[in-house]
Design a protein around this nucleic acid. Structure first.
Lengths: 340, 340
DNA sequence: TTGTAAGCGTTATCAA
DNA sequence: TTGATAACGCTTACAA
């Protein structure tokens, strides 16, 4: 591998000049620039990133922490981030936390030991306080979470609105007996969606009893268990607002096995709009989360603040309703039930 | 950030000794080791990875190149790789190629400029020859592809067998008029699956005409177009072997729109077993590809050869048939058609 | 506009 | 078993 020294010798200039040409920083005469460029290409010179980082104290690397590498949601997230970063010759270093607090902390140290210039986090376990503290050490951007800290930048989605949209869609179809299956209570986004549910129900003038709301994991099994529970404690239910698409899938699966038809007997709406949602049985009505765009925006914000490359940035995103076949008006007889 | 120098001063030893303690390499007396350890923890010392890499010419980083970050297949791949690497304190640097030759080359240079100790590639566009050449510069492991090179390690799946399994499953159900929708002809795995199809058909004693095979993209749209084409040129078809699950989904979608029922009128089998396959309409019969395990094995091989951490390694993997609801016996009348 | 030279924080060689 | 000390390849004042 050619070094800067070899380039400088071949071009007949100093190493400093070669460095200047590379960084385009200082003023270099056209003539020397050409000499250097030529020397670089004939030697096939590539700068040693480690030496650069060591000397400049910049790694040109952004760290990303997600729960899982696996899964459509995180895939879109990574894709959106990588593309923007790559266009700007920045590197992406990824670590996963498996939604475990210790692993999340480890992931941070792991990435920090690599001297990432900034961290993008889909933080689940770390408290606002620890994130605030972390931001003292390195610029932090949180995705899909609003962190109560001046120092932490949050690219967030209005999950309350999302919850409202999902629930209101059901209300508008004529439903009144609407159950809600939330994600884990310790997840901010899950709770926001629940708040949205409550808000929309109140707006519709229907009071919500405890038995129509149940907590679950953000996965298929959780959806199944929740649906089973609801069938027992809230039998008049005609619709379910699910915390995410996986919960919706689980619920639909169990409902179908129990002989209920979706959406004729019970409507189900998900959240996330995972890639295969149109192909589920039935095609899933859901709330679209523009996670890829959000991740791209996180990258732009970092380009802006850390690398001083000017970028337009917007931090607040809106969910969107996608109606497919898993939601429909309630059956006439169940509507009568409402009136009673 | 504390440096090795500060640690050495606090512990009252030389920098070299601190380095030895860190690397556990040379023999250090128990006493000094303790002094150093103590100094390190009181200073909260973390070694500077760049300085280490610069001096040792090792980055502890493995580069990964995939077509997309997005999508279930690559998600599982990355997950499998990251886990093994992380357990061994190695870093994963990811770049995507979008199945474009230039971008694939760029991704290689991108990762190499970061001095990755090894590259794991889901290489699609680079030829065997270029991969062989690349292997001169850095250890290369290819996933799901058998590269004709001594230097390149291939963790491969028997895709011919997979094609045979899919087709044979249909044959055993009683089908004779079986179409095949392959992925792009320049993709090795697509062609292997096609070979498997031919082999199984031959084994079943039925001759394959050109009109029953058609090429497609590995995506839903491709599946739709292919199904439409087959409907026209091979109307007696009772089953389709799809190049992957996305093609299968597209084909099923089009078939359903055209009034055909799957599997009653036409059976469809996919390939990959993407995570949501059980929830499709109908639940998709497919061939399972253990891509996560394969990626983990790639990591193990690298641990073995590059980092001299002994690991058991196996390079050849087998696909597996997963039968669900998109395949069934052909209707009686179409079976009669066969006899004619 | 260009060159000199002092770091950056490690590892690794060679003595002691 | 330890300590000096020379790399490693680049950036960046400071001079010229």
């Amino acid at each position: 591998m050619a070094t800067i020294k070899q380039v400088s010798e071949l071009a007949g200039v100093s190493q400093a000049t070669v460095s200047r040409v590379m960084n385009g920083s200082a003023r270099v005469s056209q003539a020397t620039r050409e000499k250097v460029d030529e020397a670089m290409s004939t030697l096939g010179y590539t700068p040693n990133a480690f030496a650069q980082s060591l000397a400049s104290n910049r790694s040109n690397t952004v760290g990303l922490i997600v729960s899982e590498l696996y899964g459509p949601y995180y895939g879109q997230l990574m894709g959106g981030l990588e593309q923007v970063l790559r266009e700007n010759s920045k590197y992406l270093l990824i670590a996963s936390s498996h939604s475990d607090e210790t692993m999340e902390e480890e992931a941070v140290e792991f990435l920090l030991s690599r001297r990432c210039d900034a961290l993008v986090m889909h933080a689940e376990r770390l408290s606002d306080a620890s994130l605030d503290k972390l931001a003292e050490r390195v610029p932090v951007v949180c995705l899909n979470r609003q962190v109560a800290s001046e120092r932490v930048c949050s690219v967030h989605l209005d999950n309350i609105l999302g919850g409202v949209m999902a629930t209101r869609h059901l209300v508008e179809l004529g439903h009144r007996h609407i159950a809600c299956v939330t994600g884990p209570a310790w997840k901010q986004d899950a709770m926001d969606r629940l708040t949205g549910y409550h808000r929309a129900m109140q707006e519709a003038g229907v009071t919500v009893e405890d038995r129509q709301v149940t907590e679950s994991q953000f996965d298929e099994g959780g959806g199944r268990r929740a649906a089973e529970k609801l069938l027992g404690q809230f039998p008049e239910m005609t619709a379910i607002v699910a915390g995410d698409d996986d919960i919706a899938i689980g619920a639909i699966g169990l409902l179908t096995e129990r002989g209920y038809r979706v959406p004729e007997d019970i409507s189900v709406i998900g959240y996330d709009n995972v890639p295969y949602a149109p192909h589920f049985s039935p095609p899933l009505s859901t709330i679209e989360v523009p996670i890829s765009d959000m991740a791209g925006m996180a990258a732009r914000h970092i380009l802006n603040t850390v690398y001083s490359k000017h970028q337009e940035v917007k931090l607040a995103f809106q969910p969107q309703l996608v109606t497919r076949k898993s939601t429909a008006a309630p059956r006439a007889d169940s509507a009568v039930g409402t009136a009673v």
